[in-house]
């Protein structure tokens, strides 16, 4: 899928600016794959933008500890993902993927949102 490549490249470009760039880029890339494979996209959207079926996760996801605690233990509308279904390292990669999402533009600067 072309969007996988595009996001991967964007994440890579963003991450080269910081010291741990290469490692983070790799995990964000895998994070995208896992995010799609285990179905987070279904309720939160493919870039974590959120909607009526699940809140926005990206950009700026919850800090990792709170994030992983939530995913492991949630018992309401979101079903929990336990370790047999999603490993710790894959969950960390998902977090990296969400962190790598570009910050949304201020809606006041988007002409279509000011019609």
């Amino acid at each position: 899928m072309s969007n996988v490549v595009r996001v991967g490249v964007a994440a890579l470009a963003a991450c080269l600016l910081i010291e741990t760039g290469a490692a983070l880029a790799a995990s964000a890339d895998n994070g995208k794959k896992v995010y799609m494979a285990v179905g987070c996209w279904g309720c939160h959207g493919t870039v974590g933008q959120g909607g009526v079926t699940g809140p926005k996760l990206a950009p700026e996801p919850l800090p990792y500890e709170a994030f992983s605690a939530f995913v492991r233990t949630t018992n309401r509308a979101m079903p929990p993902y336990r370790e047999p279904v999603l490993s710790n390292s894959d969950l960390a990669d998902i977090h990296a993927y969400l962190e790598a999402q570009p910050k949304a533009a201020d809606h006041k600067t988007i002409p279509l949102l000011n019609q």
Binding site: G45, V47, G48, P59, A104, I110, L112
Partner: peptide
């Protein structure tokens, strides 16, 4: 309304296209 507009801006350039973007492109 401001919160809605801010939420619409998230994933604005995503592909597949966000339903918020679709809504506003059609509106235009």
């Amino acid at each position: 309304r401001q919160r809605n507009l801010a939420a619409m801006a998230v994933g604005w350039d995503a592909s597949p296209i966000s339903t918020a973007r679709l809504t506003m492109e059609v509106w235009a």
